[in-house]
């Protein structure tokens, strides 16, 4: 594989809809396929506050 797609170096990000994908030019069993992979997404854990309004 020689060269890359425009603006997409190895590991570059392409956005499809609301999702991001990473491009590799070294995919496949012979490490020479162009592959798009869903980019690892950041997981944010938010504290959950349970507020009870019920009386005793």
């Amino acid at each position: 594989m020689i060269g890359t797609f425009n603006g997409l170096p190895e590991g570059g990000i392409i956005t499809l809809g609301e999702a991001e994908f990473q491009i590799s030019y070294a995919g496949g069993t012979d490490n020479n396929d162009v592959v798009l992979m869903a980019a690892p997404t950041m997981v944010v854990y938010l504290p959950i506050v349970i507020k009870s309004t019920a009386g005793p």
Partner: peptide, 12 residues
């Protein structure tokens, strides 16, 4: 698109 999904757009 879920994590881990991939597409081989050009394969040799």
């Amino acid at each position: 698109p879920i994590r881990g999904i991939s597409w081989s757009l050009l394969t040799m």
